[in-house]
């Protein structure tokens, strides 16, 4: 399986919560938090639920908070999917 990337998260967020804080384009968003991009707890929960369904991984609570950065979320998905592949 291809590793989960920022692009995947971008697509996921657009699909389940749009772009409330403006465009998600550009890599600078990696170190912003979900909250800074205008996402609320429901949006992040919905994204995490879709990750669980698509990739079969359950993310730790700390990366599914609105205060979490996108980087932490992406890294957590990668770590979990890799662990699963082993």
């Amino acid at each position: 399986m291809e590793a989960f990337t920022l692009d995947d998260l971008r697509a996921l967020l657009r699909e389940c919560a749009g772009e409330p804080g403006g465009s998600l384009d550009g890599d600078h968003i990696l170190d912003t938090t979900f909250a800074e991009l205008g996402y609320d707890s429901l949006a992040v929960m919905e994204a995490a639920a879709r990750v669980r369904r698509r990739y079969g991984v359950v993310l730790p609570e700390e990366v599914t908070q609105v205060e979490s950065t996108l980087r932490a979320f992406v890294d957590a998905v990668r770590a979990q999917t890799q662990a699963q592949a082993v």
Binding site: A17, P20, Y39
Partner: peptide, 8 residues
Amino acid sequence: LPSHLLPQ
């Protein structure tokens, strides 16, 4: 409508 309202 704003994009974030559509999925919900």
